[in-house]
């Protein structure tokens, strides 16, 4: 019997599966760059052919990263309702806008289904799955630390225009660092209040006020604890000489090797191929 309080189980963001594969060992800056290139490529590829290829390539990333495909698919499951709703809406309402192109398959009242609108529906659903696969492989193969470091490095050029890259990266790091802490805290709080007779989410859904009120015994203490932690953290950071304005050095240094460059180039080539597929 699963416990309804096991919150950490459901948090897949930042769930890192160290299998030591080649994907895991890529330089995080290059991995992140390749990821961004591929996401952009997928976003602008609208043909059946290119998306079939992209889907195959994205699926192939799992064995390459030595992550069980089953685990990757479990990330798609919660998204299925969204994909379906999106598909239905597109199918019903997009036909008119595409009226000029493609064949009309079906027409009744305001609903028009053309070959173009059908393609849009199918391609959108495929894109959705591709993006989920890519993001899963990225987060499962890259620790949050590497991700934030990679991001910090990629954003570095923005310093020239006065963007506080270091501070921004630190904020992200701290936020990520406290996700598991707060998940545990919330779990403990729910259990503690349940022990005092609190019930969560048992009221009917239309009684929104009541359900919100039910959450007060958790939200208020959680807020207090978060403030207390933040205060402590500020003191501890100050005690270790942190001043937001000063120049800092960085501990982590990465050396991109041939395989990292290869990964970026490959992703560029893939995107070029995707664009080249005509249908």
């Amino acid at each position: 019997m699963a416990s309804s309080f096991e919150l950490t189980r459901n948090i897949t963001v930042g769930q890192y599966l160290p299998t030591g594969s080649i994907i895991h060992r890529l330089d995080p800056r290059c991995k992140l760059a390749a990821f961004v290139i591929l996401i952009l490529g997928i976003a602008f590829c609208g043909t059946y052919g290119s998306n079939v290829l992209a889907l195959i390539l994205c699926t192939a990333l799992f064995p390459l990263a030595r992550i069980p495909i089953r685990y990757g698919l479990s990330g798609v499951k919660p998204a299925i309702p969204f994909i379906l709703i999106l598909a239905i809406l597109q199918l019903l309402f997009y036909g008119k806008g595409f009226g000029t192109g493609g064949q009309t398959y079906f027409h009744y009242g305001f609903v028009t289904i053309t070959s173009d609108s059908l393609r849009l529906v199918v391609v959108s659903a495929m894109r959705f799955v591709e993006v989920i696969f890519l993001s899963s492989v990225l987060t499962l193969s890259t620790s949050t630390t590497e991700l934030t470091h990679g991001m910090e490095h990629l954003l570095m050029p923005l310093r020239k225009v006065g963007f506080p890259v270091h501070a921004f990266a630190l904020i992200i790091t701290i936020a990520v660092r406290f996700v598991p802490t707060f998940a545990l805290e919330m779990e403990k709080m729910m259990k503690a209040q349940a022990s005092r007779g609190a019930e969560f989410g048992t009221g009917s859904w239309w009684r929104i006020v009541q359900r919100t009120k039910d959450m007060f015994p958790i939200i208020i203490p959680l807020f207090n604890v978060a403030l207390k932690r933040a205060e402590d953290l500020i003191l501890a950071m100050e005690a270790r000489c942190y001043t937001p304005t000063d120049e800092r050095t960085t501990y982590k240094r990465y050396h991109a090797s041939a395989k990292d460059v290869f990964a970026v180039v490959t992703s560029l080539v893939i995107v070029a191929v995707l664009f080249a597929i005509p249908v």
């Binding site: 259990k191 503690a192 022990s195 007060f216 208020i220 203490p221 604890v225």
Partner: peptide
């Protein structure tokens, strides 16, 4: 479960954190 929780009072570590 409600009857059980009436029977067993559980006080967590640092219970002062739950005061709301």
């Amino acid at each position: 479960v409600r009857a059980l929780r009436r029977k067993v009072g559980l006080v967590f570590q640092n219970p002062e954190d739950q005061i709301f």
